[in-house]
Amino acid sequence: MRKTGTIHGVGIGPGDPDLMSVRADRLVRTARNVAFFRKAGRPGRARAIVAGMIAEGAREIAMEYPVTTEIPLADPAYNACLSQFYCEQTRRLRALAEDCEDVVVLCEGDPFFYGSFMHLHDRLVGQVPVEVVPAITGMSAAWTATGRPMTWGDDVLSVVMGTLPETDLVRAMQNADALVVMKVGRNLPKIRAALCHAGRADQAVLVQYASMEGQTVTPLAEAEDGPAPYFSIVIVHGEGRRP
């Protein structure tokens, strides 16, 4: 039977290479083919995290997003464009695997937590072997950066997306004890307003570039109201039962 290569979705953590797992480090350093997502014209954050780790002579496969913010998220064209992109990248990786080549796909954070690799995984499973290496998430690095425990006792932790309508954000914020808000960016003013309506704004902290160079931790009340960098997360700590 003809051998087939394996596609490895490798979580490389929140940004600091020291926070990568031993398995992720080994796979990256020994890979013959390394694929990574990036915005056109940019080196890509995932590639930057592993700078100096990729073996000499390894093939680098840049998967450049066709859109990021150019088309509104609610526009059907956005989903259609990205769907075509993921299908094209799936074909590229599948062709390598069918040629008996293993491929390491670099995944910021954890591959199965709001990551782009999930869209490749769903298209590759059942076609070629796929393995996933879990990793520390960006939100874990963010709450660690605050220097405070995130949850206590019976606290309910909710993770919500800043892209949601404000009414949905308010409802989620009111129902959670501890809260992580991701996809902040241009949604920061809406997130701030929702936290105010939920009565949680005074407890909120904005963490930018967690575990990376330029990391900042700022009470949300003191943060500027303009768009936040891509690597931004809003944290509201739980204050639950303690012995």
Rank of each mutant, 00 (worst) to 15 (best):
M1A: 13
T4F: 12
I7A: 02
G11C: 11
P14A: 07
D18C: 14
S21N: 02
R23P: 00
D25H: 13
L27F: 10
L27M: 07
V28F: 11
V28C: 08
R29A: 10
V34I: 14
R38I: 09
K39L: 15
G44W: 03
R45N: 11
R45C: 10
A46C: 09
V50S: 00
A51M: 04
M53N: 01
A55C: 03
I61Q: 04
A62G: 02
E64F: 14
P66K: 10
P66V: 10
V67F: 00
P76V: 00
S83R: 12
Q84I: 08
E88K: 10
Q89N: 13
R92E: 12
L93G: 00
R94A: 13
R94M: 15
L96C: 02
C100T: 13
V103C: 04
V104R: 08
G109S: 06
D110I: 09
P111W: 01
L120F: 05
L124Y: 04
G126Y: 02
Q127S: 13
V130L: 10
A135S: 14
T137I: 02
G138S: 14
S140M: 14
W143L: 13
A145C: 09
G147Y: 02
R148S: 09
V156P: 11
V159Y: 01
V159H: 01
V160A: 09
L164R: 12
A176V: 04
D177T: 06
N187W: 06
K190D: 05
A193H: 14
A194H: 06
L195T: 12
C196K: 13
A198V: 03
G199K: 04
R200H: 06
D202G: 11
D202R: 10
L206G: 04
V207T: 02
Q208A: 10
Y209K: 15
E213Q: 14
L220Y: 09
A221V: 09
D225H: 14
D225L: 14
I233M: 15
V234P: 03
V236N: 02
R241T: 14
